[in-house]
């Protein structure tokens, strides 16, 4: 092989799009690839989403506002935001604790626990709902029936958002140097002081990023809440389910209005997430 390459005449380094010429800023190969990618992305994602937003606004802001504030849509949106906020808070606390246990604690079976954390990402959402209904439904072996209640909605959202905080906090905790903590302990700091003054400030950006991701996911969630919530308007119907029933009854403009609100909340959360990550990078 070496002899073969040695015998080959040396050609000038090829750059895509032009031989010998100085590398252009934007080669034809790049342009073709970019064109195809943007077209594909536009046809599947961008144009459809733009049409949703346009359809929600094309009859004026008054119509948009009325569609969003119909009693059932408003109740569903409020429930979604409140339930998602509760779920995000529980995730903030429990996710951090679980990440802590997975990194700092040692016990038999820890590797198994670490693996199953990702199960909610792999499990279809409709199965997640069914599975929760089996343990916390009318036939509950524990005698706890959360079917058709708001607590059931929160439970479903907790299930599908479980991995977010854990998986963002875990790597940061792994990187954290235990030397500083030992130094603090040797200088007489209590475990609580060490946690508050040394560990927590390092973890906060990751904790908040994970919480923002969990919140975004909870706002958008549909499949897992379908079975356990029973979809009772004004009681357990979340925004995505309300949206679904509006699509089924061909109320396209109303459905587009709710979709736009959901998209706006998700984008706001992602923007916040981006800011949090930059803040974290600057501190790290």
């Amino acid at each position: 092989m070496t002899t073969d390459t040695a015998r080959r005449p040396l050609s000038p380094p090829r750059t895509p799009g032009g031989e010998g010429r100085p590398r252009p800023r934007f080669s034809t190969g790049t342009a073709t690839g970019l064109g195809v990618a943007v077209l594909y992305l536009s046809l599947i994602v961008l144009i459809p989403l733009a049409v949703v937003v346009w359809r929600s606004l094309d009859q004026g802001p008054g119509f948009f506002w009325r569609a969003v504030t119909t009693p059932d849509a408003w109740a569903a949106l409020t429930l979604t935001v409140v339930a998602s906020a509760i779920v995000a808070l529980i995730n903030l606390v429990m996710g951090t604790i679980i990440a802590w246990v997975l990194v700092r604690d040692r016990f038999p079976g820890k590797a198994v626990v670490d693996t199953i954390i990702d199960l909610p990402f792999a499990l279809p959402t409709i199965v997640a709902g069914l599975v929760l209904l089996a343990l916390y439904g009318p036939e509950s072996p524990l005698g706890v029936n959360l079917a058709y209640t708001r607590a059931g909605v929160v439970l479903a959202l907790l299930f599908v958002t479980l991995p977010f905080v854990i998986r963002t906090v875990q790597p940061v905790l792994l990187e954290l140097d235990a030397d500083v903590e030992q130094a603090a302990a040797s200088l007489g700091a209590s475990p609580f002081q060490i946690f508050r003054r040394i560990i927590l400030p390092n973890l906060v950006p990751a904790m908040l990023s994970g919480t923002a991701l969990a919140f975004t996911r909870a706002i958008a969630e549909f499949g897992s809440t379908v079975l356990i919530s029973g979809n009772l308007p004004f009681k357990t119907q979340v925004a995505a389910v309300n949206l679904f029933s509006q699509i089924e009854s061909d109320n396209t403009t109303g459905a587009a209005a709710i979709s736009t609100v959901l998209l706006a909340v998700a984008l706001a959360a992602l923007l916040l997430l981006d800011l949090l990550q930059r803040w974290g990078n600057r501190r790290g």
Binding site: T30, A31, A220, F222, I247, T252, A256
Partner: peptide
């Protein structure tokens, strides 16, 4: 390298933030 790379990068992640039902409505429209 091309202009608008960060934007393309951001658009790729967009589907993660969109509710599945909104996806369905968007495609129907």
């Amino acid at each position: 390298s091309f202009p608008g790379k960060r934007l393309l990068n951001a658009f790729i992640d967009l589907p993660m933030a969109v509710s599945p039902v909104v996806v369905g409505l968007a495609l129907i429209l």
